[in-house]
Design a protein around this nucleic acid. Structure first.
Length: 347
DNA sequence: TCTGGGGTCCTAGGACCC
DNA sequence: TCTGGGGTCCTAGGACCC
């Protein structure tokens, strides 16, 4: 979906149209601590981008309309769009709230037919939801995803198998799935900046430098990707974290926050009918140094007191120092759904 | 400029078992 | 006397995705 969160806000509030819109944390006159979640193309003209500090966005474009993130609404719209998409294929994979992969191998005979289908999908989403999207059609997930990003907004890019390598070659390596900031830096030091550079590089040196993922990198650069399109199975963890408005070393205040998070996690855990065995506390100091502390219990549980007690215990170690803390978080993992657990105890 | 919050997967080291 | 080889589970940290 194109600038998904911002597009939904514009749809709901027509008065926003034509104005720069930034969805994200409260900028607080430039003192806010969050980030930009999504912004529309008007705001992008000022250099505002997703993931950018909201304080910087404020400096770049303070006359923007700053809108708080309304996940509940976006999740609802997302669900409606995914429902539309699922009718086109049973080989479907949702990717975050606003992207999805569709395997159309058995629906179409060639790329021309795929293009017609893609146009139909775009039209249906626009008719029903008044939102635009960009679609990429390719021989595999990797190429299709990069193609979908090629012509935004409202784009449609078709890349046939025989053109994949040439299509990718001039693009920055960063465009590849799983090449983030760190991997890009590492590749750059090897003199690799484009996907074409990577495709022509010595594969065994890549393996030497990156291990198993070196092979993956090399194949990706050739436009090769054999990964399956499949729905995610079961959730593996549930977590919550909060960044304080100001860094603090006030133990009582921190423990209060931890209790609130515990409460929240408890609600979600029981609502989704899971029990957990491992609990992890996370803290981030003012300088962004981040640490975690985990404990695996001897039993599965979904009791509120187990969450609160273990969380507090794990946090204690971090409260002895006077260092100022910026963020605290809590994660429950090693999950078993209660249904599955009953099956196990039956045996 | 100063960095959210929800996730997944991987790696390395250590404890422990037979 | 000075250390095998197979395995599982746990912890901490980090890269990456949207």
């Amino acid at each position: 979906m194109d600038q998904f969160f911002a597009a939904i806000e514009e749809r709901e509030r027509p008065e926003l149209r034509g104005k720069p819109v930034i969805v994200g944390a409260d900028p607080k006159e430039g003192k806010g601590r969050g980030v930009v979640s999504t912004c529309n193309y008007e705001a992008r003209k000022y250099g505002v981008k997703s993931g950018m500090a909201i304080s910087l966005a404020w400096r770049l474009c303070s006359h923007s309309v700053f809108v708080p993130v309304n996940y509940r609404l976006y999740r609802k719209v997302s669900g409606q769009i995914m429902k539309i998409l699922k009718r086109y294929t049973n080989k479907f994979e949702q990717w975050g709230l606003d992207e999805a992969f569709l395997d159309l191998t058995s629906q179409v005979k060639n790329f021309e037919e795929a293009k017609i289908l893609a146009e139909k999908i775009k039209k249906e989403i626009n008719d029903k939801e008044r939102l635009t999207c960009s679609i990429g059609v390719g021989p595999n997930k990797l190429v299709a995803k990069i193609a979908s990003d090629f012509e935004k907004p409202d784009g449609l890019t078709i890349v046939k198998k025989e053109n994949a390598k040439a299509f990718l070659a001039p693009l920055r390596v960063r465009k590849l799935l799983w090449v983030g900031r760190k991997t890009e830096e590492k590749l750059n030091t090897l003199g690799i900046t484009t996907i074409g550079d990577l495709a022509n590089y010595n594969a065994s040196i890549l393996v030497e430098k990156f291990g198993i993922s070196g092979t993956q990198l090399y194949l990706s650069a050739q436009g090769i990707d054999n990964s399956e399109i499949q729905e995610r199975w079961e959730r593996k963890s549930i977590s919550r974290e909060i960044t304080f408005e100001e860094d603090t070393s006030d133990s009582d205040f921190i423990l209060e926050g931890l209790d609130a998070i515990s409460e929240d996690l408890y609600e979600e855990l029981t609502a989704s009918k899971f029990t957990f065995k491992t609990i992890t506390v996370k803290i981030r100091y003012g300088n962004f140094e981040t640490h975690t502390h985990a404990k695996t219990l001897a039993f599965f549980t979904d009791l509120k007191k187990d969450i609160q007690k273990s969380a507090k215990n794990l946090m204690k170690d971090y409260l002895v120092s006077e260092r100022k803390i910026r963020l605290i978080g809590l994660k429950l993992s090693n999950l078993t759904s209660i249904k599955k657990q009953m099956r196990l105890t039956d045996k």
